[in-house]
Design a protein around this nucleic acid. Sequence first.
DNA 1: TAGCACATTGGAATGATTCTGATCTAGGAG
DNA 2: CTCCTAGATCAGAATCATTCCAATGTGCTA
Lengths: 141, 141
Amino acid sequence: MKLEEALHKLKAQGVRLTPQRQEVLRILIEETDGEEHLSAEEIWRLVQKRYASVSFDTIYRTLNLLIRCGLASELDFSDGCRRFEFAGNGHHHHLVCLKCGRAEELAFCPEDCLARVQVERPGFKITGHAFKIYGYCQRCQ
Amino acid sequence: MKLEEALHKLKAQGVRLTPQRQEVLRILIEETDGEEHLSAEEIWRLVQKRYASVSFDTIYRTLNLLIRCGLASELDFSDGCRRFEFAGNGHHHHLVCLKCGRAEELAFCPEDCLARVQVERPGFKITGHAFKIYGYCQRCQ
DNA sequence: TAGCACATTGGAATGATTCTGATCTAGGAG
DNA sequence: CTCCTAGATCAGAATCATTCCAATGTGCTA
């Protein structure tokens, strides 16, 4: 399954599989049911359940490591802290609720817009993009 | 001109026109030649030229006030601090250079994408959006 | 199984932003 | 024009997310 695959990918990059790292990865993959996008603190609390003495620093170092290895991506919902998600579910964007802070995932991607931008600005070398939609989810209206 | 207009708009909302506020607004409007998008600290240094004892706190309170009044907007270029711009130049997006941090403004807006999203997710009430393109500007490639 | 390069820990440091309590002032009332 | 006060400013301390540091612990290769 996904976790095995992700661990294998990490190992293939010469990264040590410590229990803390495995647990962070497991949480990103398995404990984000529905529309949860966890903050570092939330991940820390979850890891603590199994490894009570894990430090905050380890969480951040691990998350940054996973990002460098392409297994996690960071999100910014303008709520004061970074949020993280597993990067193995394909490219997507988010609908962010301004009241409850939850984010729904959106498969749709404005690729054709990118092409138009590239034509308009040939001098700029595009490497990535972000499309975020703000508003109120059904529950919060 | 623009500054007069903006000050008038502020007054109309019952906001006191202190010299510090006027200077912050003037800097946002007049001193951002080219593609500068100022951080709070940069604005602070500029205000200090005229009001040497201005506090950092005043800069932040003023910027947040201007945002609430619709005269400024905040930008996030993922470089660790918020950046600000005058909100009277029309809706636009940004091409952010990952090397030098500068942002070019992009008049093009993926409005049609928004419409498609709205059809796809009728339950979500859209109030705003952000479209950011990351990459390398001509100078930095 | 041993050894060491790399990870983890706890606490302190950093940097952006906001709060606090004392002092000052913009701008309306007289 | 002057007075008055709600609201603004100031300096410095507090807060919050994130990272650094030095000591200690541990995956994993040989």
